[in-house]
């Protein structure tokens, strides 16, 4: 009986959370299309989420591209297929590693900072203060962050893909004895426009997931510093899990349909 009751409570809690998230998403879209628009807040969010993520994303992509080239070379040499390194680095970065690693890195950096900032505002009554000052917290805090993350992640992923391919190229010509022209020609001939666009479209979804997770968990933070810590952790974990799950669904949709 106790097991059934606990199970019922879990289901109830899960459905309650789904309801809250749905309500939150509807509220974001309603506030996105109605005035006022806080232009300065949107620009600030673009700077903090997009521009400030570039260094960490670039470094991650550079090293990943380099490591990928080494791994493919080592694997490919077992059946004399070393020449596939440029093509697989390019396709792997554009389709999979660029978007997923970029999404996870930005999730760690941005979802945590959004959840901590909004969560602190929640537990110190700053969100209530916003409402009493005739300002809708969703419009003022959430909409700019969701817009900035959703629009800047595709751009970040495109840049990350390029840097990752550059990483593979540098390792290819310096460590694996590829000639520069062969490497570039092989990359250009094998990489298709659909490979690049699939990654960029994934970025739109991942950006939305990151901002939603950070904002939602921050908005529902409670119980002081401990609650903000929990909200931050939940934001990052949820963003990472949903990015990986969404990545699988989108990969199925793009390449297996």
């Amino acid at each position: 009986m106790k097991v059934l009751r606990n199970l019922g409570q879990c289901v109830n809690c899960f459905l309650n959370k789904i309801g809250k998230v749905t309500d939150f998403i509807i509220s974001i879209f309603l506030n996105l299309v109605t005035p006022p628009i806080y232009g300065r807040e949107i620009l600030k969010a673009f700077y903090q989420i997009g521009w400030m993520s570039l260094p960490v994303l670039g470094l991650t992509a550079l090293f990943t591209g380099g490591a990928l080239a080494l791994q493919i070379y080592a694997g490919g040499s077992r059946f004399n297929a070393e020449q596939v390194v440029p093509a697989i680095v390019a396709i792997g970065m554009a389709r999979e590693l660029g978007p997923v690693l970029g999404g996870l890195i930005v999730a760690a950096r941005v979802a945590s900072s959004i959840a901590a900032e909004i969560g602190t505002m929640k537990v110190t009554e700053q969100l209530d203060a916003l409402t009493t000052l005739s300002t809708n917290p969703i419009k003022y805090l959430v909409v700019p962050r969701v817009l900035a993350a959703t629009l800047s992640l595709p751009a970040l992923i495109a840049i990350g893909d390029s840097i990752g391919i550059l990483g593979g190229y540098l390792v290819g010509i310096n460590r694996l004895d590829f000639s520069s022209s062969t490497y570039l020609a092989s990359t250009a001939s094998m990489l298709q426009i659909s490979d690049i666009f699939s990654g960029i479209i994934k970025g739109v979804f991942f950006g939305f997931i990151i901002a939603l997770s950070g904002c939602f968990n921050g908005f529902y933070a409670s119980n002081g510093a401990e609650g903000v810590g929990k909200a931050t952790k939940s934001a990052v974990v949820a963003a990472c899990v949903f990015i990986l799950a969404t990545n699988y669904i989108l990969t199925e949709a793009f390449f297996n349909s």
């Binding site: 505002m121 110190t124 009554e125 700053q126 209530d128 203060a129 916003l130 009493t132």
Partner: peptide, 10 residues
């Protein structure tokens, strides 16, 4: 409204 913890925007 004056909030208990002031609730100023940092």
């Amino acid at each position: 409204m004056l909030f208990q913890g002031s609730a100023l925007f940092d």
